[in-house]
């Protein structure tokens, strides 16, 4: 069940929660991630969906959040990381197809693992609870199907 132990997961989760909490306590903003794609596209697309006033108002801090995430991961890589840099061995087609569905699905659902999974659940939102159960269920089924079919 826990071949790598529980500590790195729990401690990592608490650090993530502290980051999200600090942002909320200082600014009232929910540090969620998938909206970043939509608000960033507002710089490039004239479509009304992206030019929505809310998107324009959020795009600067969502970019700041994205840069923070990258900076934090760089900090970890050069301090506590036991193996330094990391390059995934997951096949490119899986990153591409999976990425496409993740981008489309999270924006249709209005949330992802952070939006529904952290901020939504922490807000006791039943909508987010249903979303989390749904994406967890489909993720588990998909990963098992691919393994069963021997897809690498």
């Amino acid at each position: 069940m826990f071949p790598l132990g529980i500590e790195p997961y729990l401690i990592g989760g608490i650090i993530i929660g502290l980051g999200v909490s600090i942002i909320y306590i200082l600014t009232g903003l929910h540090a969620t991630q998938s909206s970043f794609f939509t608000t960033t596209l507002s710089w490039f697309s004239k479509l009304p969906h992206f030019q929505d006033k809310r998107n324009i108002g959020e795009r600067d801090w969502r970019l700041a959040l994205c840069l923070g995430l990258i900076s934090g991961a760089i900090l970890y890589t050069f301090t506590l990381s036991p193996s330094g840099m990391f390059v995934t061995g997951v096949n490119t087609w899986r990153l591409a197809l999976g990425g496409l569905l993740v981008g489309f699905g999270t924006r249709l659902s209005n949330g992802c693992t952070s939006g529904h999974g952290i901020s939504g659940l922490a807000s006791l939102s039943t909508t987010s609870l249903y979303a989390v159960i749904t994406f967890l269920g489909f993720g588990i089924i998909t990963a098992h199907l691919l393994e069963f079919m021997g897809v690498s």
């Binding site: 569905l101 489309f104 699905g105 999270t106 693992t113 249903y130 994406f135 269920g137």
Partner: peptide, 19 residues
């Protein structure tokens, strides 16, 4: 909300990535 979450979950299961 649910259709999107199902599509997201499928992509998550294919790639192991979330935003």
């Amino acid at each position: 909300t649910l259709i999107g979450a199902a599509i997201f979950g499928t992509g998550w299961g294919i790639s192991g990535q979330c935003p």
